[in-house]
Amino acid sequence: MLRVEGIDAGYGRAQILRGVSLEAPAGRITCLMGRNGAGKTTTMKAIMGFLPLRAGRITLDGEDLGHLPPHEVPRRGIGYVPQGRRLFAELTVAQNLEIGMMTRRSPPEVLERVLSLFPRLRERMDQRAETLSGGEQQMLAMARALCLRPRLLLLDEPTEGLQPSMIALIRQVVERMRDEGVAILLVEQRIDAVLSIADQVVFMENGRVVDGAAGEALRADPGPLHRYLGV
């Protein structure tokens, strides 16, 4: 389980996160919601170790992540699917996956399993990532993160700008990972998506966590969603 306890972080002198605390248990989908600029992406970057922590602690299954150098963080089993995909654009699909495989020296059968989740990628192995369609690029971003056998998966708006069939596929994979016991932290803007998939929801505003709710409770009464997203 991922535990974030009272972290302060930001870019340069600008402080974005103020005392953010949240938990993402194994085998559950935790959604991070909030308006643009609320600090959702920044929270993910802080977990990945891109931003120095000014206060607070981040632990995964009890191990402190906050003091590791950034490249050691993913080696603890954290797969990151960043906003806007951010593939290695000039590398081929196979090379992008190879980098995911190298992170924790995954055995070859991991690649087979990941490709069985996204069979379309198998046909594109030698193509450069930048030549893929938007949906295929998102599959690759997911596949790359799954190649490192994550215990925790950070997904930053993985369905942004995708067509419905692709959204369904991504969702299937996310649910499958949850069922396998992976802790999932998901940033998502679409209310219907959150309602249908979230086990618990954390609301952020101005760099703070302002509320939390169980998925069940929100399905019964979606009031807080509208309050914190202003729709």
Binding site: F50, H71, V73, A89, L91
Partner: peptide, 21 residues
Amino acid sequence: GLLMRATQQDREIAQAFGIPV
């Protein structure tokens, strides 16, 4: 070479995949 090219294209994401940039 693969590590170098990945670092060249996105330093931050390279780190997010365990490359000691």
